[in-house]
Amino acid sequence: MATAALVLLLAVAPAPAIAMDFSDKDLASEDSLWALYESWRAEHTVSRNLGEKASRFDVFKKNVRLIHEFNLGDEPYKLRLNRFGDMTADEFSRVYASSRAFHGDRRSDSFMHGSAPAASSLPSSVDWRKKGAVTGVKDQGQCGSCWAFSTVAAIEGINAIRTKKLISLSEQQLVDCTASNWGCSGGWMDTAFQYIATGCGIASEAAYPYTAQQAPTCNTCVRRLVKIDGYQDVPANNETALQVAVAAQPVSVVVDASGFQFYSEGVFAGECGTSTNHAVTAVGYGTTVDGTQYWILKNSWGLGWGEKGYIRIKRNVEDNRGLCGIAQVASYPVKTSPNTKQDVHDEL
């Protein structure tokens, strides 16, 4: 069996909440910072015991000042106080970006979108959100299932492209049923694609809703909705090949997300490595007015993070692995077969 990105994410985000703004006035004194911390805790429903609260407040203060000072600079992206506000950078990395991506043996099948045509032959920009092929941003909750969200977003995309119907599909089915993966402890997107292609298909979100925990049993072949015929891997370490694939459909990718803690807007060009640890979905690409090329990535940390749940990261960097390792391991589902009449009935 082919293997690709093994994404092992530990615990994940709490209930979604909106990022908070603050001003110089909030930083003026210890009392004003305490008031800001209390407001942040209330906004994000964070409870702390008395012993932990003081140490967490110290972390919060450092993070608030880091965000403030960073935003005074001229970087092409901005930071914002979000639900990760009283976590240290090391804690964030361990919890949200501590997994290892297992590259494994890549499939030898030919790349159906072409090997590496000239970038000049591709559209200058693509945004599958504007083409009706991307569902709303979701939140994986307290389950290490980023791999399932990446898989599902890619399948939602190709299904919308092929059928002209955008349907939210079930991450929970993959968490419960993909035997070769580890549920809330991680998994391979390619293995999930293979499970859907060789099995009964994948159910809608409504038919098999998300619970953010792995069930002891799998709801086998119950109300399956969408079918795919397989998957293909994008040639590794080739951003042009990845661009070719994303021009055709949303694509599952893995990145090093250790630097994403307080990302808010703009094109991320900050420090990150290539030891990929988090699965997301590339849903487009483009270029800013000043000529900076970027990827559009759909994340699964809810609407309160990033650009309403998305991040743009710099594209076509000197390292052929891509910024944050985005070009190392990417794959996408193949769909040529129609969904059955029974499947369509189950959608209703």
Rank of each mutant, 00 (worst) to 15 (best):
A2D: 08
T3P: 00
A5Y: 09
A11D: 01
I18D: 01
A19D: 00
M20Q: 06
K25G: 07
D26C: 12
D31N: 14
S32H: 11
L33F: 12
W34C: 02
L36C: 08
S39D: 04
L50W: 07
E52M: 09
V59D: 07
F60Y: 04
F60T: 03
K61F: 04
V64C: 04
V64Y: 02
R65W: 12
R65Y: 02
R65I: 13
L66T: 04
F70R: 03
E75V: 06
E75M: 14
E75Y: 14
Y77G: 00
Y77F: 12
F84Q: 01
D86A: 09
M87C: 10
D90G: 11
F92S: 05
S93V: 15
V95Q: 14
V95W: 06
S98L: 06
R100L: 06
A101I: 10
D105V: 11
R106M: 13
S108M: 05
D109V: 13
S110G: 04
A116P: 01
S121D: 09
P123N: 01
S124I: 15
S124H: 15
S125K: 07
V126N: 06
G136Q: 08
K138Y: 02
D139L: 02
D139K: 01
D139N: 15
D139W: 03
C143A: 12
C146K: 00
W147D: 03
A148C: 08
S150N: 11
S150T: 09
V152G: 00
I155P: 01
N159H: 11
A160M: 10
R162I: 13
R162N: 13
L166K: 07
L169M: 05
E171D: 10
L174T: 10
T178R: 11
S180D: 13
N181G: 08
W182R: 07
S185H: 15
G187A: 06
A192I: 10
G199K: 10
I202N: 08
I202V: 15
E205P: 03
P209M: 13
Q214E: 15
T217E: 14
V222N: 11
L225E: 14
V226H: 06
K227N: 06
D229P: 03
Q232G: 06
A241D: 13
V255N: 04
D256K: 04
S258D: 03
G259S: 11
A269R: 04
G273W: 10
T274W: 14
T276M: 11
H278Q: 06
A279Q: 07
Y285H: 09
G286S: 09
T287D: 09
T288N: 02
T288V: 08
G291I: 12
Y294R: 12
W295K: 09
L297N: 02
W301T: 00
G304M: 03
G309K: 03
Y310E: 07
Y310V: 06
K314S: 10
N320P: 12
R321T: 15
C324R: 00
C324T: 01
G325M: 03
Q328C: 02
A330E: 03
P338Q: 15
N339C: 10
D346Q: 06
E347Q: 10
